[in-house]
Amino acid sequence: MYTLYGYPKTRSVRVAWALEELGLPFDYKLVDLKQGQHLSDEYKAISPAAKVPALATPEGTLTESAAIVTFLAERHGMHEFIPEPSSFARAKYEEMMLFLTSELEQPIWNMAKHTFALPKEHRLEKMREVAAWEFNRALLVFSSMLADKEFVCGNMFTMADVIAGHILAWAKGSKLNLSLNGKAENVAAYAQRVLGREAYERAWRNEMAHLSE
């Protein structure tokens, strides 16, 4: 049994989504960020970076969402959700994962940091404008990488789509234009396709339900 430490509208929904796609049972532990529970010594013993998500497994704890979903697919995917190890398709999966987390996601995270995450004295108003420009540039690259494929790795839905889908949902929530006024229509259509999956809906609803408990 896995235990997911998370909070709604954060990267923890990626792990919840992956678990739902795989049909794996898991316990959910709410880490109330607004109450500062992530800064407690108890939680830092689980996640030294004091961030969510964290996934407790029988073998230890994992804390990076891209690593977690990849581990889950390798352990439980049964030749689904991730290409075969050492294949060229697997290399393209890894390439996409690295691009998503280092290029496409970072501008949105910078926007968040300079809007609410950083202490006020360290926020730069201009950074939000710069980050939006960086995101648009990365989105054009993603549009080219996606091309006319159904999913980022071709015809198979993989954990890279979980990461990509969440990043695009985050971008929409940040009022960024996914179609880039017609320059990336394939991205907007892709986002609608993957974010319409039942597993994503279940993961999102389950996290939100824990706020009212």
Rank of each mutant, 00 (worst) to 15 (best):
A199S: 05
P8F: 01
K183G: 13
S87I: 04
M156Y: 05
S102C: 12
H38N: 12
R14S: 09
G6W: 04
E21T: 08
S174R: 10
K175A: 15
A209H: 03
K92V: 08
L178N: 09
E103I: 03
K29I: 13
V31C: 06
F71M: 07
E207S: 06
N155R: 15
I163R: 02
S86E: 15
R123A: 02
M78G: 14
E121G: 05
S212D: 13
Y190C: 11
S174V: 12
L24W: 06
E125Y: 11
A191R: 04
G182K: 04
H114I: 10
N155M: 14
L178Q: 12
E129M: 12
L19K: 02
I167M: 01
T10L: 02
S102H: 07
S65I: 10
M159H: 10
K34L: 15
D148H: 01
A56K: 13
E105L: 04
V152K: 00
M145A: 04
A199K: 07
A67Y: 03
H38L: 13
E94F: 12
G23V: 11
F99K: 10
N177L: 12
R205N: 08
L211E: 02
E207Q: 06
N136P: 02
T10P: 11
A203C: 00
K51Y: 05
A189F: 09
K172V: 14
